[in-house]
């Protein structure tokens, strides 16, 4: 049998070019950062096991999993609401990887490993809301979409999970976005088009 060596690669490997993009005469209004190397597990309660899942989540993560569209974080993990009785577990470094979580939730939930099935993009900067307003129908005003708010929604006809992380040290809001790997490139180009007029600073990072 042939030997394969599977090299995990970002779905944005070709589309993402590190550096400045769009308007140059202004300070970049948008930062687009792809986060690489994360674990992402989708957890869905089995029929009638919602309460059991809630207990198991609390035991495992030391905090309740969100039951409404929100994202909650502990030091090494973020739990993102993705629908009724389901959430995503985002982490780094194998601590909440599939084999470990499947033990913890085997009684109450069905799990699927989405680690290499999604791209994770972080959007921030003074013009982040202005850019997202061109593409998203959600009201992202701080009063309606505060830190920790989350949404399963569509951007440019593409399903995404969008949530607001902690603000940057300079006080700017951060919007995190998960998109299916095969749609990532298309959405990336759409976002670049929308962001170009504000000047974009493109990068990638291994820090979740």
């Amino acid at each position: 049998m042939a030997e394969f060596s599977w090299l995990p690669r970002s779905p944005l490997e070709h589309a993402l070019v590190v550096g400045a993009c769009g308007a140059r005469e202004v300070a970049p209004g948008i930062s687009l950062t792809e986060i690489r190397n994360f674990d992402l597990i989708q957890i869905m309660a089995r029929r009638g096991k919602g309460a059991e899942l809630a207990n198991a989540a609390k035991a495992r993560f030391g905090m309740a999993a969100p039951e409404v569209p929100k994202a909650v974080s502990a030091s090494d993990v973020t739990l993102i609401w993705s629908g009724p009785d389901q959430f995503l577990v985002l982490s780094k470094g194998g601590k909440h990887a599939m084999d470990i979580l499947s033990q913890a939730f085997s009684q109450s939930a069905s799990l699927s490993d989405q680690s290499h099935a999604r791209a994770l993009i972080s959007i921030s900067g003074t013009k982040a809301r202005a850019m997202l307003a061109k593409l998203s129908s959600l009201d992202l005003h701080p009063a309606s979409f505060p830190i920790g708010a989350a949404a399963a929604t569509s951007i440019d006809h593409t399903s995404v999970n969008l949530w607001r992380g902690n603000d940057r040290p300079d006080g700017q809001a951060v919007f995190n976005l998960l998109v299916f790997a095969t749609f990532a490139e298309s959405l990336w180009h759409t976002m670049l088009d929308a962001a170009a007029e504000y000047g974009v600073d493109i990068g990638h990072s291994a820090e979740v």
């Binding site: 869905m44 089995r46 029929r47 009638g48 919602g50 629908g83 009724p84 009785d85």
Partner: peptide, 12 residues
């Protein structure tokens, strides 16, 4: 309203 079966807890 949620349809019958939408959301495991609803269904239960």
């Amino acid at each position: 309203e949620p349809a019958a079966g939408a959301g495991a807890r609803q269904a239960a």
